[in-house]
Computed example of a mutant assay.
Amino acid sequence: MSTALARITGLALLALLSLACQAATPRCAVDALAQRLCLEAPAGRVVSLSPGATELLFSAGAGDAVVAVSAWSDYPPEAARLPQVGDSQRLDLEAIVALAPELVVAWTDGNARTQLDRLAALGVPVFWLAPRDFDDIAGAVEALGHLTGHDALAARRAAAFRAAIDELRVRYREARPVRVFYQVWDQPLMTVNGDELISKAIALCGGRNVFADSPRLVPRVTVESVLAADPEAIVTAGRGDGGWLARWRRFPELTAVARDNLFLMTPSLLQRPTLRVAAGSHELCQRLEQARGRL
């Protein structure tokens, strides 16, 4: 055997040994419930139980491993073509078990613990997500990438997300504060408090959520309380025809109305705590910069 051939053969054997070692090394991650989950090998069959989890799995590079999703999993587009196994109200546990998943990804705010505990009792590995801030999102992508064997890709995408958020943080660090009312829903009228990710995006852009101190994550509010808070900008991603915003024009005394600072965001970019939050935050920052120019 020639020296060159021997070298190539040796490199090939080393590569095979490396892959074998990786496959034999348990892959462990700590989930949102502080539970440590270890898999003997990268999960090749994954069931996602929330739209946010579905999107994060695809971002982590594990899209090809996802065999079923929950209702409303519509991004990326290929996720919408996958079989569905229920929604936040009810899961088809028999269908999930029949799929022989090597990993089930659940969402603490949307999935029932009792149902998922039944899956875990059957030996199905369950990993819980609950991203509350920007770093949680990046960390979720890294964890899912690790559990499914896509560490490098997941790490690159998480790093790009962190860099995009850091860039906005630096750019708007000294920006003039803008009082913001973010409308989540119309009837009943709902917003977010300071612990919700949308509020953290507002703060990232130099805004101040007028209901940040509310004790509830997604509180119901009254028109009178919004009038009393007198926001300088009103933002929503709700009715695509701007109908929600148009209703505020009945109150010309509101600063946001007087300065025409009523903004309709692109749907889905901020509502789901996924990597698209970076694009949503960028759009929000642009809107609040418009508002500053009108104050």
Rank of each mutant, 00 (worst) to 15 (best):
D133Y: 07
S214E: 13
G240A: 04
V223A: 10
A41R: 14
V184I: 15
T3K: 09
R81H: 12
C205R: 03
P76H: 14
G149Y: 12
L153T: 10
L217H: 04
E167V: 09
W107K: 13
L17A: 13
G242H: 12
A246K: 08
R250T: 02
R294I: 01
D195M: 13
T9N: 10
L116H: 07
A120R: 15
E174D: 14
W72N: 03
C285Q: 03
Q183K: 08
L269A: 15
P77N: 10
F161D: 00
G52Q: 11
A130V: 07
A79R: 09
I198F: 06
V223D: 13
E55W: 06
Q187P: 05
A68V: 02
V277Q: 07
L13W: 07
I165V: 09
L288Y: 05
P76Q: 15
D31N: 13
A6G: 13
R247D: 10
C38T: 09
R27D: 00
A175C: 09
D213K: 10
E174F: 00
S214D: 15
R208T: 11
G238N: 13
L227R: 04
G243I: 04
T25P: 03
R27A: 02
P273W: 04
T255G: 06
E232L: 01
L99V: 14
L91T: 09
M1R: 14
R250P: 06
N261R: 10
T191R: 00
S214N: 13
I137R: 06
V223L: 11
P273V: 05
L116N: 01
A112L: 08
E196P: 08
D166Y: 11
L17V: 13
A121M: 01
L37M: 01
E142K: 03
A6V: 15
